[in-house]
């Protein structure tokens, strides 16, 4: 069964881009969320294998959301999607238990490498 992934980004364009990359590689996008609060909620509903989480989002940012998800499920596999210049935030996320990060603009190979390694399938 293909791995199920939750894609979180406030920009629909970004979600669509990531979704395409993942689906072309045979992953299933289990759901999408457009802010951190929705991500936490959807994670609970969908129990995806991994989460791709944007950092800068309204309502609740990605770091807080990642922390909340990891608190409820310490085994959660969360990857941060980040822009250059947000390294301090990424480090904070990794300290909190986030598995990896992917830098925007997304390159398909990088996204898949990161997701694959985090899920232990590549």
């Amino acid at each position: 069964m293909s791995k199920r992934i939750l894609v979180v980004d406030d920009a629909m364009f970004m979600r669509a881009t990531v979704k395409r990359i993942l689906e072309q590689a045979g992953y299933e996008v289990a759901g999408e969320a457009e802010n951190g609060a929705m991500a936490v909620e959807r994670y609970g509903e969908l129990k995806p294998d991994a989460v791709l989480m944007d950092i800068t989002m309204p309502v609740m940012d990605g770091i807080s959301a990642a922390k909340a998800i990891l608190q409820s499920d310490p085994g959660a596999i969360v990857l941060m999607c980040t822009a250059l210049g947000q390294q301090n935030l990424v480090i904070e996320a990794i300290k909190a238990g986030v598995k990896d990060y992917i830098v925007k603009p997304f390159q398909p190979d990088r996204v898949l490498e990161g997701v694959g390694k985090a899920l232990g399938v590549a």
Partner: peptide
């Protein structure tokens, strides 16, 4: 690292 800007807003209904 700088503290996360945790917005303590209640989780909005999706």
């Amino acid at each position: 690292a700088p503290t996360a800007r945790s917005n303590a807003e209640p989780a909005s209904k999706s």
